[in-house]
């Protein structure tokens, strides 16, 4: 067995995802280097979400996870360092948006508001004060990114993150992500899926092809 590469940020070695007959991804190593912005490419039902969810331990998978050269033992701390934003973000019901994204102190709330503003939310303070149940799809997408940013992760994993956004806000979202990556390019990375080729070209430094085995 090869030693895990010290230059990689995340590694999934001998990664094997099998959900049942007809839902199997080829066994391989997935290596994510610092500064990379990886786009997963593949048609609908090709297993992109499945792969991302298996990275996060939400689908049964076999293989070994490494973070910064160390094998991951606790998924709990892995999940705070690697923030995953699913296709349809979910929040604690009946909470204010601020509570639901973990902005409890006034400093956190100020940061959340400025992040939301930068993502094109017209009145971030009002959005944060409302209950999260009434937030629209586009608002939820942006709240999910802010929630992830507040966790101070090293990797952000996004599954179709801008599907609910109009083109203008989609660009804002992309720019915030690029800016975040650019702040510490030697320590951070991004993985995302997108059906939009234009978005992959705009954002990705590399693409990973994903397809289920027959």
């Amino acid at each position: 067995m090869r030693a895990p590469s010290t230059s990689s940020l995340l590694e999934f070695r001998n990664w094997q995802v099998e959900i049942g007959p007809g839902a199997r991804l080829p066994v391989r190593d997935w290596l994510l280097a610092p500064g990379q912005c990886i786009a997963l490419r593949g048609g609908s039902g090709s297993g992109k979400s499945l792969l991302l969810r298996s990275f996060m331990g939400l689908e049964p998978a076999r293989g070994r996870r490494f973070h910064g050269g160390q094998e991951v033992i606790s998924l709990r701390s892995f999940r705070t360092k690697v923030q995953f934003i699913p296709q349809v973000p979910t929040f604690e019901p009946r909470m204010s948006a601020a509570e639901a994204i973990g902005a409890r102190t006034s400093a956190q709330q100020a940061r959340a508001a400025s992040e939301l503003e930068c993502l094109g939310v017209a009145d971030p303070t009002a959005l944060l004060a409302r209950t999260v149940d009434v937030a629209s799809g586009g608002e939820r997408a942006r709240l999910a990114l802010v929630r992830a940013l507040l966790m101070e992760p090293v990797v952000i994993v996004l599954d179709e993150p801008t599907a609910a956004l109009d083109p203008e806000n989609e660009r804002r979202f992309e720019m915030r992500l690029q800016e975040w990556l650019g702040e510490k390019p030697t320590q951070r990375a991004v993985i995302f899926t997108s059906h939009s080729q234009a978005q992959r070209v705009r954002l990705a430094s590399e693409e990973w092809e994903v397809s289920l085995l027959p």
């Binding site: 331990g57 939400l58 709990r76 999940r79 705070t80 699913p86 979910t90 019901p93 929630r147």
Partner: peptide, 13 residues
């Protein structure tokens, strides 16, 4: 399921 997964993703046990 989605709520539980979301909690796990925020680092909850």
């Amino acid at each position: 399921r989605h709520l539980i997964e979301s909690r796990l993703l925020q680092g909850q046990a």
